Amino acid sequence: MQARYFEREEDGRLRCTLCPRACRLADGQAGFCFVRQNVGGRMVSLAYGRSTGFAVDPIEKKPLDHFFPGTNVLSFGTAGCNLGCRFCQNWSISKARVAERRSQQWGPREVVDLAIEAACPAIAFTYNDPVIWAEYAIDVAKEARARGLKTVFVTAGYVAERAREEIFAHMDATNVDLKGFTEDFYRKVTLAHLAPVLETLAWLARTDVWVEVTNLVIPGLNDSPAEARALAAWVGEHMGAEVPLHFTAFHPDFRMLDVPPTPPETLARARAAALEVGLRHVYTGNVHDREGQTTRCAGCGEALIVRDALALASYRLAGDRCPRCGAKLAGRFGAAPRTPGDGRPRYLGLA
């Protein structure tokens, strides 16, 4: 598939303009992400149409707690990634080349057909970072919107300015994974940089896209209360106090098998720090923590949506307002959620 987002260099190489890496590719070379390649002077997307699998997930798994909570979403990804996170928890996909993953062609119409058949009102581009397969995500999103479905972009936010404008013009919601809050962490642990992610987040806050932010808390690396407080304060100042922030637990994986899981107490401290600096909707994830996963009214404190991990226990929101005081809850909400249940994903198998 012919790709966009590149410029031709004087020496014949193609410079990718999709993400801040700006990979310069000679004929036959692929970028850091493995899926964008110079083939005979043409930039090609090797990932276009090639899904490594589909699943029906609760929207809370993305995680999105203020975007049609209690509904299901068709989730899928491809192969490759433009970050090099040592802790990657989807490494079998994100660190693989397309040829190493069993996959078949799924055109945009076929993906939307599958979502409709699975009774999913939304499609999520996830598992590996959809930035690297932007053309495919955009085409699926166009088809989805034309047929009345919502779109969700789950990303690390490592994307160039021109590309992000086109990508997010077709998205209804996004969760951006803010890996840490120091340049040292980004450079050493993700092989990337912090500044472009912060630029993406600040820009998104000025758009109509619903945005939530996730921080995976890793013991000994980015788990200090001071960092949690600084991160939350930045979100409040540059994105707004109503933006939901998720602190989620790490489990040993990929190249960090020697790091212990995140204690629930660490997440609770991070959440408390974020609430203290003024954020109104702060959550914990990857743990059982009913209070840390409950959506409360920012006005009166009423419990509006009660969760336990991905399970929806109760839903008391009246449209988009608190039934007790009438205050409006920030987010996007529908008439009724799915039946409360355990929130387990339903895998549809590899494509």
Rank of each mutant, 00 (worst) to 15 (best):
Q2G: 05
Q2L: 10
E7Y: 09
R8P: 08
E9Q: 13
E10I: 13
R13S: 14
C16N: 03
C16H: 02
C23N: 05
A26T: 10
G28R: 12
A30W: 09
G31W: 00
F34K: 02
R36N: 05
V39T: 08
M43R: 01
M43H: 13
V44R: 13
V44W: 13
S45R: 00
A47S: 14
A47N: 14
Y48V: 02
Y48N: 02
R50T: 01
D57N: 03
I59V: 14
E60N: 12
E60K: 09
P63F: 12
L64R: 01
F76L: 07
N82I: 09
L83Y: 15
G84R: 11
G84K: 00
F87D: 01
Q89N: 06
W91A: 03
W91H: 08
S92P: 11
S92V: 13
A96M: 10
A96W: 07
E100S: 10
E100Y: 03
Q105C: 09
W106A: 09
G107P: 06
E110W: 00
E110P: 00
D113E: 15
A119Q: 05
A119W: 06
I123H: 05
Y127R: 03
P130F: 06
I132K: 03
W133E: 11
I138T: 05
A144Q: 02
G148E: 10
L149A: 07
L149C: 09
K150I: 02
V152L: 02
V152N: 00
T155C: 00
G157D: 14
V159D: 01
R162I: 15
A163E: 15
F168C: 02
F168K: 02
A169W: 08
G180L: 12
G180I: 05
F181W: 05
A192G: 15
H193A: 15
H193L: 09
H193Y: 12
A195Y: 07
A195H: 08
V197P: 00
E199M: 07
T207Y: 11
E212V: 07
V213F: 04
T214N: 01
P219A: 03
P219M: 06
P225L: 14
P225K: 15
L231Y: 08
A232L: 11
A233I: 05
W234L: 05
V235K: 02
V235N: 06
E237G: 11
H238R: 12
L245S: 00
T248L: 09
H251K: 12
P252I: 00
R255I: 00
L257F: 10
V259T: 15
T266G: 02
T266S: 04
R269L: 03
A270I: 03
E276I: 10
V277Y: 08
H281S: 13
V282E: 01
N286K: 11
V287H: 02
E291L: 04
E291Y: 02
G292M: 04
C300I: 08
G301K: 11
R307N: 07
A309L: 06
A313D: 04
A313K: 10
A313G: 06
Y315H: 08
A318H: 14
D320N: 08
C325K: 09
A330M: 04
F333Y: 15
P337G: 13
P337I: 12
T339A: 10
L348V: 07
G349C: 05
